[in-house]
Nucleic acid binder design. Sequence first.
DNA 1: TCATTCCAGAAAATCGATTTTTGCAAAAAA
DNA 2: TTTTTTGCAAAAATCGATTTTCTGGAATGA
Lengths: 228, 228
Amino acid sequence: MSTSHPLAETHSASGITAASQVFNALKQDLIRGRFTAGEKLAISALKSRYQVGLSPLREALNRLAAYGLLEQLNQRGFRVPTLDASELADIAHLRTQLECMALVQAFQAGDAEWESQLLAAQHRLRRADQTPGEIERWEQAHQHFHRTLLAPSGSPWLLRFIEQLHDQFDRYRRLAPSDPATRELLDQHHAELVTLALARHAGEARELLELHIHLSHQIAKGACPSEA
Amino acid sequence: MSTSHPLAETHSASGITAASQVFNALKQDLIRGRFTAGEKLAISALKSRYQVGLSPLREALNRLAAYGLLEQLNQRGFRVPTLDASELADIAHLRTQLECMALVQAFQAGDAEWESQLLAAQHRLRRADQTPGEIERWEQAHQHFHRTLLAPSGSPWLLRFIEQLHDQFDRYRRLAPSDPATRELLDQHHAELVTLALARHAGEARELLELHIHLSHQIAKGACPSEA
DNA sequence: TCATTCCAGAAAATCGATTTTTGCAAAAAA
DNA sequence: TTTTTTGCAAAAATCGATTTTCTGGAATGA
């Protein structure tokens, strides 16, 4: 657990269900690592933290459990999944496989509109700082970049799974320390990916994406409980 | 919608949460096609159909929406997803990719225990009839066979996605008509897959699995709304 | 001493009622 | 006629209270 967290200043953003709001807020907090891995969530605490009633809260918890960001114990509530090096390896490996598939498809289907959106996304990512105060903006730009890169892939289910794995992966990555030099290197990958995308060099892009995920994996490992 | 459906004779099977029970029952009914594709679910009707209160019912609906067996409209409840030929193609294609990946891994990791379980699963599948009265038993044996085939793959997330796609695929397959000759052919595949698995002929098995899914896809197409 | 049973207190799950939102139809205005 | 507004029933979403289940420690018995 961590600091307090008001859900919304302006009471109830119009037309959006309370359950969805808690879902999104909780999802973000889980990915950001605001809860301790393995922690059992006290429902009444969440209730006051997010300022909602039991029903929408429980609906959000159920959705998150189905999504894989929470574990549901039989009659003992919900718990934050633990971090585990072998699971991270599984996630990283699958990400590589699935994202490479989507990348090749995107290269075939991507049109001029996609190219401009990709350039725009990369530009926004470049401009965002990874400084503590701006980290959320950067994270959003980063996610948007990777999403844009693969978007033209005509496979909704593939993109869905990739998104899910990305969220899982980020649980680790955002908790792990990283040095500026490595961050710089990763950011360089983004730029090179754009270049390769515009030129439709699928093979090279594929290799670079593999490398990109592999390096991210190395960093993310830092979040795993130390080995005995 | 269809016929009535009592959830449980013996009120509340011990230790299992009501929400989970509705979840499972609803999930099965959705996969079996007991609801019309595109239908909007009347919550109060489900309430009496499954004999539960609102809270556990809504929790189940939320979980199913996160799983992809329901769509959640903004403030207008839940609807059964429509059947669409292009989505089916996406599902079938992805199944091929993912299951082939898992198959190769399973062939490497599978041990003697796996081999016997696989033989057992295939035997049970052979003995089960696809007659109307026995169809549920066959479906269960069929699912168990495919699950066993890929089980040794060391990738929990891959298996999770495969399971999810399988459920999606079955929504189509179970609605589509099939002739006995084709069914016989598919069942032959199962037997051959076992043979190839025992011999660890990954390449041939891979091709056969591709063919198997492709043929299933052809059948499942029959469930899609007719083209204009 | 160790294992088992029993008993609050706490937490989760569920229910019934209330509040909010939607959908539709009838009335009013253009 | 066509479009917009208004009002009301139906449905969804949410709340507060109740019921059920779990947990850990004290009491009991071996």
